[in-house]
């Protein structure tokens, strides 16, 4: 996404492209969840953010908890998450979403509270808040979109950028000797007693999408236990800033991101790890 592109037009009011006359009720096999607003996503074609938004909306609708959910949007490409998810939301300062979510949850302990954050937001500028929120075992759900890049600001290096991976601020590839190694923040917070359920998922294949949805549902359901922080990392693509087509980006993700960021549960309430 490009911040400037959003200034151009009445993006959110533009519904003229939808022709409802061809859609008859008897033909409907797949619908937009009622918990998604009637707005077109601003995300680039093929971007994982849109898929994860939809999954969150589906879970909230199916659990029937729309009136019980408060979300926190990050600063990053998902800054406008509140334009799509039809739940009460607060837009946090860059990196501070989990502190904001803590504030909400502490005064409304029986509501479902989640933060939605990118890798720059959660694992660079907001590292302190992430670790301490997890360490206090705040009963919130983190949804962490790791695309290995700063999407919103145009493709700079993120804390999660792979060794050798090019970005606008590592134009010759990430040199770990001067730029450090990619940070596996998910493994790091899983080691804290405060976390309850920690998992890493992806959404570039239908089967994985279904798994991620299950994880999100579990993340919301486990909040009722009040036994600690739930944390779902989604290894994601950023076709625009990776300078690839959506399909190429999915292949690249599978071949390069997944060997380093391995999918699966890292910590579950009954103690099983894989």
């Amino acid at each position: 996404m490009n911040e400037k592109a959003l200034i151009d037009d009445e993006h959110y009011e533009n519904t003229t492209l939808r022709d409802t006359t061809v859609i008859q009720p008897e033909n409907i096999v797949y619908e937009k969840p009622k918990t998604l607003k009637d707005a077109d996503f601003h995300y680039c074609p093929g971007c994982a953010h849109s898929v994860v938004h939809r999954l969150i909306a589906e879970v909230i609708e199916e659990m029937g908890i729309q009136s019980e959910v408060i979300g926190v949007a990050p600063v990053g490409c998902a800054v406008f998450a509140y334009n799509y998810l039809d739940v009460d939301m607060t837009e946090a300062a860059h990196g501070r979403a989990s502190a904001v979510a803590t504030g909400i949850k502490r005064v409304l302990p029986d509501k479902y509270v989640f933060s939605y954050q990118g890798d720059g937001d959660l694992a660079a500028i907001g590292t302190g808040e992430t670790i301490h929120t997890c360490n206090r075992g705040e009963n919130i759900l983190f949804i962490f979109i790791n695309n290995g890049i700063y999407g919103m600001t145009g493709g700079q290096m993120a804390p999660t950028t792979l060794p050798g991976m090019k970005s606008t601020t590592s134009p010759f590839g990430r040199d770990v000797s001067t730029m450090g190694n990619p940070l596996k923040i998910t493994e790091l917070i899983a080691a804290l007693p405060g976390t309850y359920y920690v998992t890493r998922q992806a959404v570039f294949k239908p089967g994985l999408v279904r798994k991620t949805k299950k994880a999100i549902q579990k993340g919301f359901e486990l909040q009722k236990d009040k036994k600690g922080t739930c944390f779902i990392e989604v290894v994601a693509n950023c076709p625009s800033n990776w300078k690839m087509t959506p399909l190429e980006s999915n292949h690249w993700l599978e071949e390069n991101m997944l060997p380093f960021y391995q999918l699966g549960d890292i910590k579950t309430p009954n103690g099983s790890n894989n």
């Binding site: 408060i70 926190v72 607060t90 946090a92 300062a93 501070r96 502190a99 904001v100 979510a101 803590t102 504030g103 909400i104 502490r106 005064v107 409304l108 302190g128 808040e129 301490h132």
Partner: peptide
């Protein structure tokens, strides 16, 4: 009343931001 020692003033004020948004 809830009282929480945050990890920093940055966290404190952002907790205030979140909690104040609930009208309390």
């Amino acid at each position: 009343m809830t009282v929480l020692q945050a990890e920093s003033e940055i966290a404190s004020i952002n907790m205030v931001y979140g909690a104040a948004g609930t009208g309390k």
